[in-house]
Nucleic acid binder design. Structure first.
Ligand SMILES: [Zn+2]
Ligand SMILES: [Zn+2]
Ligand SMILES: [Zn+2]
Ligand SMILES: [Zn+2]
Lengths: 172, 172
DNA sequence: TATCTTATGTTATATCATAACAGTCAAGGC
DNA sequence: GCCTTGACTGTTATGATATAACATAAGATA
């Protein structure tokens, strides 16, 4: 993990938007309960794993960690927990990466958009009400009833842009 | 295929936005040539297959048809042709479906958004300049340099909504 | 406790995608 | 023409992602 001690489990720029893991886990627990569901040990641990991760994790990466913690070692174990989290708004699936990431601001329903950095592979969850609204309009124009959407942008994050600029200066 | 004779190769609602296949193929040929590349037989046939398809096709569906036409029968044959088409703006990859679809209006650069019907599995390419713009703003706010994006909406298409409404009336 | 429901773990298999290499073909220089 | 060169095609093999189906275990209900 190699975390700096003051940030319990957050370690990289893509997590700057996150509330502390403790808070999110507690919130997740109550949110799930209020839907008559349970945040079982595998599910809870899966969420923790996502919260601690740099960027997004593949299902098999999660599985590896779950297995190391004594949970089942077969793919369905990870996929079930991950799908549960996604269905309950605690995590998101990043289709372009075949990967999953903890939701950066769970609790309030939101259409999420993701910014995927090609350089550092970080994944940032951006507010996307405006994007969602524009998409809603486009859909409506086609007579299409929109139920949900995947919005994923690929490019370069602020930190990597800054780093690259700095490198340029060093060379010159 | 069960096509009506007047529509050469288009058979379902999601193709209503398409120009005739002949025109698209000719256009594709010249477009590709102008980039110093070749629309070889496999590539051309792959584009035809996509143009004739209902909805989007998986790589292995395309492969099956290519093999039936005497082309190679191994996955790379299909993936290479499909990737070529995508890179040259002649087709799009639909990540949510792990599938590919012919571009409905090739030739002019465009940020495409896709409307995926959960009922009939059709895939419609919607104009999305507004959505792209909104996403650009959201990205900029985060200091993110956007290079390209995946925008995929899931819901129900016009035809399926109409059909469902009609069914409701029949029952009542 | 008996029963019902939900969740977990396992085996097995399906589906999607690429690495690596060998043969083929077309275009340009001689 | 003929040879070099680079682009394209085909093949084998393997990797990566995801789910079906069923047996067991743990919570909830009465
Ligand atoms: Zn979120
Ligand atoms: Zn970055
Ligand atoms: Zn298009
Ligand atoms: Zn439909």
């Amino acid at each position: 993990m190699a975390d700096s001690p003051e940030s319990q489990s957050f370690c990289c720029p893509d997590h700057s938007g996150h509330a502390p893991a403790q808070a999110i886990l507690a919130q997740a627990e109550s949110r799930v309960k209020s839907h008559g569901l349970r945040l079982t040990p595998v599910r809870r641990r899966t969420l923790e794993i996502l919260l601690q991760a740099h960027g997004a994790l593949g299902a098999y990466d999660v599985l590896e960690q779950l297995a190391a913690d004594g949970f089942g070692a077969q793919p369905p174990v990870a996929y079930r927990a991950l799908n549960f989290l996604v269905e309950n708004g605690l995590a998101h699936r990043i289709r372009r990466l075949n990967a999953f990431t903890a939701c950066a601001h769970p609790g309030h329903d939101h259409r999420a958009a993701f910014l995927i950095c090609e350089t550092c592979e970080s994944v940032t969850e951006a507010p996307s009400d405006a994007v969602g609204a524009a998409l809603g309009v486009a859909a409506q124009d086609m007579g299409f009833a929109l139920s949900r959407a995947t919005i994923e942008a690929v490019g370069q994050c602020r930190d990597c842009i800054a780093r690259e600029t700095a490198d340029q200066r060093t060379i010159a």
